[in-house]
Design a protein around this nucleic acid. Structure first.
Length: 102
DNA sequence: GCCATGGCTAGTA
DNA sequence: GCCATGGCTAGTA
């Protein structure tokens, strides 16, 4: 039985639409935990696959892909681009253009 | 003690 | 590069 925080994070994650992305901190803030960015990381680790959460739409605060090359970077980049989000070669997204706001 | 963060500081170029 | 964050798991007692 997951903690309420976990369930709120799951709920927020499932609302991020295709074509938009949000930072770990933004997701946490919407879930009521402004300093809980790492909780978002944990939830994605545990539930992203089984619940089909849009893990690829979560980025660092500066819009960068957090995953390392060879560790999911390429896949995340491809998934973002496939839904119309522009990603620079280095894996950066302009959140002022593609950022999700509630 | 872990973590796909994030904010801040110190140290380099 | 350090360290607070915060829920969770592994590993010990």
């Amino acid at each position: 039985m997951p903690a309420e925080v976990t369930e709120r994070i799951i709920a927020v994650l499932s609302r991020v639409p295709a074509g938009k992305a949000a930072s770990y901190g933004t997701i946490a803030a919407y879930a009521g935990m402004p300093t809980g960015a790492r909780q978002v990381v944990r939830v994605l680790h545990v539930y992203a696959e089984s619940l089909g959460l849009p893990w690829h739409r979560v980025l660092r605060k500066n819009g960068a892909i957090a995953l390392p090359p060879g560790g999911g970077f390429e896949l995340q980049k491809a998934l973002l681009q496939a839904e119309g989000i522009e990603v620079s070669r280095s894996g950066r997204v302009d959140l002022s253009r593609f950022g999700w706001s509630g």
